[in-house]
Deep mutational scan, measured.
Amino acid sequence: SRHTFEINGERWTVEGVSEELKEILRAAERASNDEAERLLRLALKLI
Rank of each mutant, 00 (worst) to 15 (best):
S1I: 15
S1R: 03
S1W: 12
S1D: 15
S1G: 14
R2H: 14
R2E: 12
R2M: 07
R2S: 15
R2W: 14
R2N: 13
R2Y: 15
R2Q: 15
R2V: 15
H3Q: 07
H3G: 06
H3C: 13
H3W: 13
H3S: 03
H3Y: 15
T4W: 13
T4R: 03
T4I: 09
T4F: 10
T4D: 10
T4Y: 09
F5W: 04
F5G: 00
F5S: 00
F5C: 05
F5R: 00
F5P: 00
F5A: 00
F5T: 00
F5E: 00
E6A: 02
E6Y: 08
E6R: 04
E6Q: 09
E6G: 01
E6N: 08
E6W: 13
E6I: 15
E6K: 05
I7C: 08
I7T: 02
I7Q: 01
I7L: 06
I7P: 01
I7N: 01
I7R: 00
I7E: 01
N8L: 15
N8Q: 07
N8V: 03
N8H: 06
N8A: 07
N8W: 06
N8F: 06
G9C: 03
G9I: 02
G9V: 02
G9M: 03
G9L: 02
E10N: 08
E10M: 14
E10P: 01
E10A: 08
E10K: 11
E10T: 13
R11A: 08
R11K: 13
R11F: 04
R11W: 09
R11N: 09
W12P: 00
W12C: 03
W12Q: 01
W12H: 04
W12N: 00
W12G: 00
W12K: 01
W12T: 02
T13H: 12
T13F: 11
T13D: 06
T13S: 09
T13K: 03
V14P: 02
V14A: 05
V14W: 09
V14H: 02
V14E: 01
V14D: 02
V14K: 01
V14I: 13
V14Y: 08
V14C: 09
V14M: 10
E15N: 07
E15C: 12
E15R: 03
E15W: 14
E15H: 13
E15T: 08
E15Q: 10
G16S: 10
G16W: 09
G16H: 13
G16L: 09
G16C: 12
G16N: 14
G16R: 05
G16A: 12
V17R: 02
V17P: 13
V17C: 08
V17I: 12
S18I: 04
S18P: 04
S18A: 06
S18K: 03
S18H: 06
E19G: 07
E19Q: 12
E19P: 10
E20H: 07
E20V: 12
E20D: 11
E20T: 11
E20P: 06
E20R: 06
L21K: 00
L21W: 05
L21F: 05
L21H: 05
L21E: 02
L21M: 11
K22H: 13
K22N: 07
K22S: 07
K22I: 15
E23M: 09
E23Y: 08
I24Y: 04
I24V: 09
I24R: 01
I24A: 03
I24L: 12
L25T: 00
L25Q: 00
L25W: 03
L25M: 09
L25S: 00
L25Y: 02
R26A: 12
R26N: 11
R26C: 03
R26I: 10
A27N: 11
A27W: 10
A27G: 06
A27Q: 14
A27K: 13
A27Y: 05
A27R: 14
A27S: 09
A28S: 04
A28P: 01
A28Y: 08
A28G: 02
E29T: 06
E29L: 04
E29V: 05
E29M: 07
E29A: 09
E29N: 04
E29W: 02
E29G: 04
E29K: 04
R30S: 13
R30K: 13
R30M: 15
R30E: 14
R30V: 14
R30F: 13
A31T: 07
A31D: 02
A31K: 03
A31P: 01
A31I: 03
A31H: 04
S32F: 06
S32A: 11
S32M: 09
S32I: 08
N33I: 11
N33P: 15
N33W: 15
N33G: 15
N33A: 13
D34S: 11
D34C: 11
D34A: 09
D34H: 12
D34R: 08
E35D: 06
E35N: 04
E35P: 01
E35Y: 06
E35C: 04
E35H: 04
A36H: 04
A36M: 11
A36R: 13
A36K: 13
A36P: 01
E37K: 12
E37T: 10
E37I: 10
E37V: 11
E37Y: 11
E37F: 08
E37L: 13
E37G: 07
R38Q: 10
R38M: 12
R38N: 09
R38I: 13
R38H: 08
R38V: 14
R38K: 12
L39H: 02
L39M: 04
L39I: 06
L39P: 00
L39F: 07
L39V: 02
L40D: 00
L40Y: 12
L40W: 08
L40K: 04
L40P: 00
L40A: 03
L40C: 04
L40T: 03
L40G: 02
L40V: 07
R41N: 13
R41F: 10
R41Q: 12
R41S: 14
R41W: 12
R41V: 13
R41A: 12
R41E: 12
R41G: 08
L42C: 09
L42F: 11
L42T: 06
L42K: 09
L42V: 08
A43R: 00
A43C: 10
A43S: 02
A43I: 12
A43D: 00
A43K: 00
L44G: 02
L44D: 02
L44W: 09
L44P: 00
L44H: 05
L44C: 05
L44F: 07
K45I: 12
K45G: 10
K45Q: 14
K45F: 12
K45M: 13
K45D: 10
K45A: 10
K45C: 07
L46F: 09
L46W: 10
L46N: 03
L46Q: 06
L46E: 06
L46Y: 11
I47C: 11
I47V: 07
I47N: 02
I47M: 13
I47E: 02
I47L: 13
I47G: 03
